[in-house]
Each structure stands twice: as C-alpha cells, then as structure tokens.
C-alpha cells in the first residue's frame, strides 16, 4: 500500500531541526512546510531570493513581485530577507542552508541523482537543482519508489542525464526511508504495512537490511 505524497512529506518533516534554513524543491518537497514539528522553528529559503518564506497568500493578497522558485505567489514571515540570485546561491554553495529536499526521477546506489532531463522528450533545464545537489551537505530526496510504469527509481546506476554525482545521502519514498552509504541503499524504516520483501523487490540497486527494520511513526 505505502504512503501518499502527504505521508512522505510528514516523514521528511521529522528530519527538521530547530534553527535550520531549509530549501524545498517543487512537488512533494513543498508539502513538507505544512508539517513542521511542534516546538521548532525553521526558515525556508527559496533560491529566487528569499529567506523566511511564509504560506501561500489568500486570494486578493497576492503580490506579483513576491514569488517562490516554482513561480507561485507567496507571503513572508516576520524577519524575512530578500537578496539577488548570486547571493542566494552563495548561501547554497557556501553551505549556509542546512537541508535541501528535492524530487528525483532516478537515484543510484552511489548517491547519483537524475531529475532534470529526458533526452528528446523533456528538455526544460536544470534551474537551481545542480547547484543545490553539488553543494548541500544534507540532501533528502522525496519521491515514489517506482515510476508510473512500475519500474524502480532506486537503481544501480542512473540511466537519465545526471544532475549530480554521489550527493544524495537519504531517500524517503512511499515505501521506505533509506540511507545511501558505501554504494548501497540501507533500509532504515518501512512505511506502515509494507514488508521488507516488497521493498526489496521494488529496489533495483543494492539494498542492505540490518536486522529488524522498524515501521515509520507518523
């Protein structure tokens, strides 16, 4: 059965720590902002030039000059700051952003990620993804375990053009939480009701299972 997108976002939100600056990609990662654990404060950075992003505005309150990296209108929190794109990526490259969460089409057992191009089919550009994955120390990939055709997205090696090499350390899917280390996916947690065997059968890359694998608590 596995988690829906909201479930994946809830599980990733448990990784947030007080005081962190966090960059959330488009799609499932954006949902993480809805589930910040009680008692901690984080600030969201958007690479188009804002630190301290708030919720979406109410209808009628939108400001065309205030958007996120997905080009949606946003609001800001008290104490937010604005900066140019070079400064924004200086924050990212300089590792002043503690956590990056982004989606992917493929992740390999070596931590390579592909999420920007399908040759001859989708050529939209990488945006800020290559800078983010090359620089961030702490990257979590949020994605479904298999694609729509049922093919595993956790591979021995990526088949699509790469976004970054050996950079992903953690993956949260609808089925599992996995850590990438030493050329393998290490199974840390299972989604409620999902067996180790099912995860094994849907993971093409090398999967290491250590003892009893706990279920996620959401």
């Amino acid at each position: 059965m596995g988690l829906d997108k909201t479930g994946i976002a809830k599980r990733i939100a448990q990784e947030l720590r007080d005081g962190w600056y966090v960059n959330l990609g488009i799609g499932i990662p954006t949902l993480v902002a809805n589930y910040i654990p009680q008692g901690i404060e984080v600030e969201f950075q958007s690479e188009n030039g804002v630190l301290g992003m708030g919720p979406f505005p109410f209808e009628g309150d939108e400001d065309a000059d205030l958007i996120n990296a997905g080009k949606q209108t946003i609001t800001t929190m008290k104490g937010a700051s604005f900066f140019d794109s070079a400064t924004s990526f200086a924050m990212i490259r300089g590792q002043h952003v503690q956590l990056t969460v982004l989606g992917a089409m493929e992740v390999s057992e070596k931590g390579d990620i592909a999420n920007w191009k399908i040759p001859g089919k989708m050529v939209k550009g990488m945006g800020g993804a290559m800078d983010l994955v090359a620089s961030a120390d702490n990257i979590i990939v949020a994605m479904m375990h298999s694609n729509r055709a049922g093919v595993s997205k956790l591979l021995k090696s990526c088949s699509l053009p790469l976004t970054g090499v050996a950079c992903v350390k953690k993956v949260v899917t609808d089925l599992a939480v996995l850590e990438i280390n030493g050329g393998a996916f290490h199974l840390l947690e299972r989604a409620p009701g999902v067996s180790v065997e099912e995860i094994q059968s849907k993971t093409e890359g090398r999967l290491v299972v250590h003892g009893d694998v706990p279920e996620m608590s959401l």
Binding site: S88, G125, G127, D131
Partner: peptide, 10 residues
Amino acid sequence: DLIPQGSLAE
C-alpha cells in the same frame, strides 16, 4: 545553452 542557475547568476 542551459546552465545551472547558481552558475548563471555567478
């Protein structure tokens, strides 16, 4: 010429 956004800015 598609280039990473941070590299473009820099």
